[in-house]
């Protein structure tokens, strides 16, 4: 593939990725948001985080299949407990990584 057509691919990808990131910031920032919208948006982060994590932990393969018990999901349990107990982001990351590493050595 030529340099120019690669550049075209990357530029078009950049534009279509940037616009959805920019649009709500640009058009909503100067407006007073209605209370119901703020309350609804308040629930979005918890929902998005869950929607990102659960499939990552409980599915595997391509096409995806349900895989409730795999190293990822088993390690998630002590990681979650540690996080609930300590509320520490850095600590949770280190503990999760260590457990995953050890579990991989033991089970893999």
């Amino acid at each position: 593939m030529s340099e120019t057509s690669y550049l075209l691919v990357v530029l078009s990808m950049g534009v279509v990725t940037y616009v959805p990131r920019w649009f709500p910031l640009f058009f909503l920032a100067q407006r007073r948001l209605p209370m119901w919208l703020i309350e609804w948006l308040d629930l979005i982060p918890a929902a998005i985080l869950s929607a990102l994590i659960f499939p990552d932990l409980f599915t595997a393969n391509d096409p995806r299949q349900l895989e409730l018990f795999q190293i990822k999901s088993l390690v998630a349990v002590p990681t979650l407990l540690f996080s609930l107990k300590t509320k520490s982001l850095g600590g949770t990351v280190v503990v999760g990584m260590s457990l995953y590493w050890v579990a991989g050595k033991l089970m893999g």
């Binding site: 629930l43 982060p45 918890a46 929902a47 998005i48 985080l49 869950s50 929607a51 990102l52 994590i53 659960f54 990552d56 932990l57 990822k72 390690v75 998630a76 990681t79 979650l80 996080s83 609930l84 509320k87 520490s88 982001l89 949770t92 990351v93 503990v95 999760g96 990584m97 260590s98 457990l99 995953y100 590493w101 050890v102 991989g104």
Partner: peptide, 30 residues
């Protein structure tokens, strides 16, 4: 275990978001 760094981070960040029953229910449903 560096492959697990982002998963662990998301778990901790989700925990921070669970500040009441309604957040827990929304998260579980999601």
């Amino acid at each position: 275990g560096i492959d697990y760094a982002l998963s662990a981070m998301f778990i901790a960040l989700l925990v921070f978001q669970l500040r009441g029953r309604i957040y827990v229910m929304t998260a579980l449903l999601a």
